[in-house]
Design a protein around this nucleic acid. Sequence first.
DNA 1: TCAAATCCGGACAACTTTGTCAAGTTTACC
DNA 2: GGTAAACTTGACAAAGTTGTCCGGATTTGA
Lengths: 157, 157
Amino acid sequence: MKISAQEEYGLRCILQLARKGAGEIGTISEIAGKEGLSVEYTGKLMMLLRHAHLVESLRGKNGGYVLGAVPEEISLGQVMRALSKPLFLEETCDDYPGQVAECVHRRECSIRPVWVTIGTLFNGMLDNLCLADLFDNEAAVASKVRQRLLLEMCPVH
Amino acid sequence: MKISAQEEYGLRCILQLARKGAGEIGTISEIAGKEGLSVEYTGKLMMLLRHAHLVESLRGKNGGYVLGAVPEEISLGQVMRALSKPLFLEETCDDYPGQVAECVHRRECSIRPVWVTIGTLFNGMLDNLCLADLFDNEAAVASKVRQRLLLEMCPVH
DNA sequence: TCAAATCCGGACAACTTTGTCAAGTTTACC
DNA sequence: GGTAAACTTGACAAAGTTGTCCGGATTTGA
């Protein structure tokens, strides 16, 4: 269980863009330089974000990327989904069926609720955190993560 | 971000063993059959569990595997660590440093607290769930997962 | 029109993960 | 002893992930 390189680096790239002023352009080479990534790889990551409409590209000289919305309106969930297909997935049972056509645990699976519960909380929390939330210092962000997770676990009806 | 095949299948295998009576032997082919996995692959997974001393092997005819402890004393955290090295890892920054020798975000990293907080809660929750907890039905397990996670978030001092 | 700066995207090599295979070793039982 | 049932282990093929390369397209501005 780990964060993939694409998820981690892609999030860092869009965060670099988000830290700039509204509408300010960031180029691939600028972002690559700031993150210590190759220009080629950074380009690939930005393409993924662009296909998800989280950033917009401006081609040609003086071109670059701008955020597709204000940092308050782009959730970490959106970013993660743009960078990795299933995202923690509640479909672990479908993904790992074994050799049997239908998952052996189709009827009653005691592992599924573990992953599903964690996955649901995790996804909900990421959907309730936005890029702007990450502008704060480490302690503040950690506190916000807990707060959003708690919100997921004990929703106010 | 996903559960790896080794983690998922390995957990299922040891759970098959845990469901048996105390000291009862389960063979690789029996477990493989129940889980719809190949005998060879199942053998490899059991080896991982054995190296972590979570199961013991009995060689020779009539041999097989037995749980290394009662199901109440084997935590999901132990199982996961046996099956995958870093386990959600709080070392994401170390793992993905980019091309720069030191992580660009060494001093202040606003992404780190997200993964660290999640990872800490996640690990704590897995350490507070044991194989016996998974004997219940889906709804009961889901409830237990939430309860343990809450325990991690709001520890009683 | 041309050159420079920039993004675009497919091909591909390196690496990791997944799963299989085959040649062992050990033990029980006849 | 011999044979069958079981685990052990390393090599390796298949598949997925990571990151690079390179020829191209687009825009600006001289």
